[in-house]
Simulated scan of single mutants.
Amino acid sequence: MSDQSQDLALDLSGIEKTYNKGKPSEVMVLRGATLSVKPGEVVALVAPSGAGKSTLLHIAGLLDTPDTGQVRLNGRDMNGLSDKARTEVRRADVGFIYQFHHLLPEFSALENIVIPQLANGADEATAKARAMDLLTRVGVGPRADHRPAALSGGEQQRVAFCRAMANAPRLLLADEPTGNLDPATSDQVFAALMDLVRATGLAALIATHNMELAARMDRIVRLDQGRVA
């Protein structure tokens, strides 16, 4: 293993993925995709719909496995890990943000950020303090005791960002994180996300159709015909 690989938060090499393998409906989504992200770097992943960016993010975040190729997180080889070990790495080191917030509707904003921390072994007082700090950073502190239904779309998505950051991950993966928001709200919410990422120094890979948002990141990579350009 090279020292360079050790220094990367995410290192994908030669990733291939085919769905419905061996069937008439076989679709090869990824064809040797290679991509790396350094700690503190925010990378935009741009691709047309159906190009495989969600698949790539799921493989990067250990929600799916490649047919061939290597996945390394923080210099550690993820290939061949048990499901239990993959779950532990994912819970501790990876944060996910989706286009829709997927917050638990029966819990408050604060509780939605406390729960993942408790699942990861934090005590309640520490979890609540961290949740409140994160909410305050993104401007939703005064709304901490509100349930998701009482929050605006932009507020809901900011809470989802905080939940993704709850366990202080080293890698953040986001799939169209502002895709369901109007342009003005999208701009504000994206700025909040970038502030949060910059303040924590983690690595982030953010899939987006929005070239204006992509231009505000450190680097843009394109997924085209199953390969990263």
Rank of each mutant, 00 (worst) to 15 (best):
A9N: 09
D64F: 06
L213K: 05
E155W: 02
F100M: 06
Q4V: 14
M165R: 08
S54M: 04
A192N: 09
Q70Y: 06
V89W: 14
G61Q: 08
A214W: 14
K128C: 10
T178P: 00
N167K: 05
A215W: 00
K128A: 13
P105A: 11
E212H: 14
S36R: 13
L73I: 15
V221G: 13
Q4K: 13
T18I: 14
A85P: 11
D83V: 14
L202R: 10
D187V: 05
H58R: 09
V189W: 05
R72L: 07
L196Y: 12
S108R: 00
L103Q: 04
I15S: 10
D7Q: 15
A47N: 04
G153I: 03
L172D: 08
R31M: 04
T18W: 06
G80L: 10
P66V: 10
A191Q: 15
D133L: 12
H101N: 12
K23P: 06
G226Y: 01
H58N: 14
Y98Q: 14
Q99S: 08
D224K: 15
L181W: 01
L110Q: 15
E106G: 03
Q225S: 10
R91G: 10
R216Q: 15
L173P: 07
G139T: 05
Q117G: 11
M165N: 11
A191M: 09
A125D: 03
Q156A: 03
L62V: 01
A204N: 06
R170L: 05
R143W: 11
F100V: 06
R170P: 01
R72W: 02
G69I: 08
R91V: 06
A47F: 04
G40V: 10
L151H: 06
L10W: 14
P105R: 08
A131W: 02
L73H: 10
A207V: 12
L56C: 09
V114C: 09
T126D: 13
M132I: 00
A150K: 11
M211K: 09
T185A: 08
F107G: 03
N74Q: 07
A125I: 04
A44V: 01
L73D: 12
Y19F: 15
E41H: 05
L213H: 13
A203C: 04
T126P: 02
Q157E: 08
L202P: 05
A51F: 02
R31W: 06
L8A: 15
L62K: 02
D175T: 00
D123M: 09
A122L: 07
M78I: 13
C162T: 01
Q99H: 06
T185V: 10
A33E: 07
L10Y: 14
T208G: 11
L213F: 10
R163K: 02
R158M: 09
V46L: 12
P148H: 08
A203K: 03
Y98I: 12
N167Y: 05
R219I: 02
M211G: 07
A9C: 11
L181M: 00
N120L: 03
N180Y: 05
V27A: 09
A160D: 01
V29W: 06
R76F: 02
R216H: 12
M194K: 15
A199M: 04
A150Q: 13
V138L: 03
L30W: 07
A192D: 15
P39I: 10
L104E: 00
K84C: 01
M217D: 00
G153E: 06
R31K: 15
K21I: 14
S13G: 07
M132C: 03
V159I: 02
